[in-house]
């Protein structure tokens, strides 16, 4: 294991190797394709059940179908629902001009028409958020006990028997994922089902997803698949499709869990351009060193000079 500049920032090909594993499986991850998410929340439920997560209380948030709100110590998958006006695409808009649908009963079976002609000037975005398992993980970098560690799969996991609840990881995460559990005092987050991975199974959320919006696999394969999916969507006229978190040159060295989004990240509650705080560790310590030297110099100099004794 060698510690280099790349250990803290920038692209890093072999995260597990950098963490000290000499032999290890391929890095795995999630590709969450939100264009096929139907908002069923099976991922939220499967995660809760498999990981035995406590409930978060019954809370109606008044935000579309989202009553989970955000990722937390007890919710490791969170499905966001965004209702927004969407300009009609050319062909559908043309048809719209001919006839106005008054929503009256018709002879068609309900749901019989599911093609382009059924589109309205309104759309729903749904997206299942999760821990990003960053290449450079802010939470892992700042953990002072070693409770957070990099697994052989390249994921980031908290050891609950080590964590002493200092809370530093909570402020270290640029995505606002990890949190301390009330009444328990320790930090919790998605483990990418470390126990299932060790037995060669896919994580519970991906297993439960009925539309394959959540895809699990080797990260390199997922990145390739995601690029093809974006190209396909662009061909079909969905020009707003974009990837989020797949770029190893971004502020966290690329995410182990990345997304295909249909709007800007902040609309889904994601930071547009997160940066791991460790990027500036060197310059911060340098500034602290200058301040410390000035402090010491001041402390020495106040004992020199004229004395009124």
């Amino acid at each position: 294991m060698t510690v280099s500049r790349e250990s803290f920032y920038g692209p890093l090909d072999d995260v597990s190797g950098d963490a000290g594993y000499t032999e290890h499986p391929e890095r795995v991850g999630f590709f969450t394709d939100t264009s096929v998410c139907i908002g069923c929340k099976a991922c939220e439920v499967a995660c809760k059940e498999w990981n035995l997560l406590p409930d978060d209380g019954f809370d109606l948030l008044g935000m579309s179908f989202d009553n989970t709100g955000e990722l937390s110590a007890n919710s490791w998958r969170h499905v966001a629902f965004i209702e927004q006006p969407a300009p009609l695409r050319e062909s559908a808009a043309a048809r719209e001009a001919d006839a106005v649908d008054l929503g009256l009963p018709s002879f068609d079976l309900p749901g019989a028409g599911t093609g382009e002609e059924t589109r309205t000037d309104f759309r729903w975005l749904m997206s299942s958020d999760v821990c990003k398992h960053c290449t450079h993980a802010g939470c892992l970098d700042v953990c002072p006990t070693g409770a957070l560690f990099r697994t052989e799969f390249g994921t980031v996991v908290v050891q609950d028997d080590i964590c002493n609840g200092c809370g530093y990881c909570v402020s270290g995460c640029p995505y606002g994922v990890i949190d301390r559990r009330e009444g328990d005092g320790r930090a919790w987050k998605c483990t990418m089902c470390y126990d299932r991975l060790s037995d060669g199974m896919e994580p519970a959320c991906a297993k439960a997803c009925p539309t394959d919006s959540i895809q699990f696999g080797p990260l390199d394969e997922l990145r390739e698949r995601a690029r093809q999916r974006v190209a396909t969507l662009h061909e079909r006229g969905v020009t707003e499709a974009r990837l989020y978190g797949e770029d190893p040159n971004d502020g966290v060295g690329g995410d182990g869990a990345f997304f295909l989004l249909l709007d800007e990240p902040e609309v889904y509650g994601l930071p547009p351009d997160p940066v791991v705080p460790t990027r500036d560790a060197g310059s911060m310590w340098a500034r602290a060193g200058v301040a410390a030297a000035a402090f010491a110099a001041a402390a020495v100099s106040v004992f020199f000079g004229r004395s009124s004794r």
């Binding site: 803290f8 970098d141 700042v142 953990c143 002072p144 006990t145 070693g146 409770a147 080590i162 964590c163 002493n164 609840g165 200092c166 809370g167 530093y168 301390r180 328990d184 005092g185 320790r186 930090a187 460790t278 560790a281």
Partner: peptide, 26 residues
């Protein structure tokens, strides 16, 4: 007192981690 698990404060002493200012501070 600010720890979520104060009785585990000594877990700070099981590692020395340059990337964690809290470990450096410890």
């Amino acid at each position: 007192a600010d720890l979520g698990r104060p009785e585990r404060f000594h877990h700070m002493l099981r590692v020395a981690k340059p990337s964690s200012p809290m470990s450096v501070g410890t």
